[in-house]
Simulated assay, not measured.
Amino acid sequence: MTASNPTVWLTLQAHDPRGLIDYYVDTFGFVVTARYGDDGQSVQHAELRWPEGVGRIMLGGYRPGNDWCREPGTAGGYVVTGDPDALYRRVLDHRAEVIRPLSDTDYGSREFTVRDPEGNLWSFGDYTGEPLR
């Protein structure tokens, strides 16, 4: 494995996976890298890459009864961006539901939070985590 391969993936299920994929691409700027089982109504599996790093998400249609099934809209994620101000303007232009407006935190980050159409919460900011010791 190389450093450019993700080692942690956020996984989501959606009532409208096609719509959620479009939302993530248009509103946040994710890039679709794979899409399987798209029958025009649902998507079995899709992979989206965050263009500023190695983070990725997997998502597919909600399939009750599957072993790996979670109710859509119950996830949350934090995405690091080099320019939170520009991304915030982008999400406002796309009329995203802002839960917490862009602000500076007491731990040195500049970030904001939005809710996607399925109900998941997404925070975006420039906090890259504490240094490894």
Results as ranks from 00 to 15, higher is better:
121 L>I: 10
110 R>P: 02
111 E>R: 05
29 G>T: 10
17 P>W: 09
82 G>D: 11
32 V>P: 07
70 R>V: 12
41 Q>N: 08
63 R>D: 09
4 S>C: 05
40 G>R: 00
25 V>T: 13
40 G>M: 02
46 A>P: 05
120 N>R: 07
52 E>F: 00
6 P>E: 10
24 Y>G: 04
70 R>G: 06
101 P>M: 01
23 Y>I: 01
108 G>Q: 03
28 F>D: 01
59 L>D: 04
58 M>A: 13
55 G>I: 04
40 G>Y: 00
93 D>K: 14
4 S>P: 03
71 E>V: 14
36 Y>T: 03
86 A>C: 00
101 P>E: 05
24 Y>F: 13
85 D>N: 10
16 D>K: 11
102 L>Y: 02
26 D>N: 15
67 D>T: 13
50 W>F: 09
80 V>Q: 05
54 V>A: 13
107 Y>S: 02
75 A>E: 12
47 E>R: 11
112 F>R: 10
12 L>R: 12
88 Y>Q: 02
41 Q>I: 01
30 F>P: 04
72 P>R: 08
48 L>F: 07
58 M>R: 02
32 V>G: 04
123 S>M: 14
115 R>V: 03
82 G>L: 05
12 L>T: 09
73 G>I: 10
30 F>C: 10
25 V>W: 05
86 A>D: 06
13 Q>P: 06
84 P>Q: 06
117 P>G: 11
123 S>H: 07
41 Q>G: 04
70 R>L: 13
122 W>A: 11
100 R>L: 09
40 G>I: 05
22 D>M: 04
114 V>M: 01
13 Q>T: 12
83 D>S: 10
36 Y>H: 15
10 L>F: 15
110 R>S: 04
84 P>E: 02
71 E>C: 01
35 R>Q: 13
99 I>Y: 00
23 Y>W: 15
20 L>S: 15
57 I>E: 05
73 G>M: 08
30 F>T: 08
105 T>K: 03
80 V>L: 02
59 L>G: 07
90 R>V: 03
